[in-house]
């Protein structure tokens, strides 16, 4: 008997499970509709955390299919990659926080003008404003 005779079956684990939808996806879509209406009337930015919900693979596919893709796609490199895209509904953003080897850390739907992670933060802008003039020192020294 060789090693190949031993039947080995890999357990894919809790990840990509059933292709069936659980009804949760539809409930989520309704929630997003409510949030979008609130934001369109000047309400605060809303975030729906997807990682902690018991969504099946089918649910996620349904969500992606229904929300579609919009005009913006972005990839952020800060502590590993983060993927952002606008859905076919302006104001509804899909944000995927990834870790090493594109491992999913968490993914969220953000409803607002622009996802927080895309914005340059006030303090970062202040820091860069301080840093910027040093460029001229370099230019000056090179010139002489």
């Amino acid at each position: 008997m060789s090693l190949k005779d031993i039947p080995v079956k890999l357990d894919p684990g809790p990840g990509p499970g059933s292709p069936e939808t659980t009804g949760l996806a539809v409930a989520l879509l309704r929630e997003i509709a409510d949030h979008l209406l609130a934001v369109s009337q000047g309400g605060e930015r809303q975030v729906v955390e997807l990682t902690n919900l018991p969504l099946s693979e089918g649910d996620l596919q349904l969500l992606e299919a229904k929300l579609g893709r919009g005009e913006v796609e972005a990839r952020i490199n800060a502590a590993g990659p983060t993927e952002v895209f606008e859905t076919a509904f302006p104001g509804v953003w899909w944000v995927r926080y990834l870790g090493e080897g594109d491992r999913m850390i968490t993914q969220q739907l953000e409803i607002g003008t622009v996802p927080v992670i895309l914005e340059a933060h006030e303090e970062d802008i202040q820091a860069s404003a301080r840093r910027f003039p040093s460029m001229f020192d370099e230019l000056d020294t090179n010139h002489h």
Binding site: A78, A79, Y97, G99, T106, V116, I117, H121, D124
Partner: peptide, 9 residues
């Protein structure tokens, strides 16, 4: 941004 991402995780 890194900071926000950490907090999101």
């Amino acid at each position: 941004r890194s900071f926000l991402k950490f907090c999101a995780g």
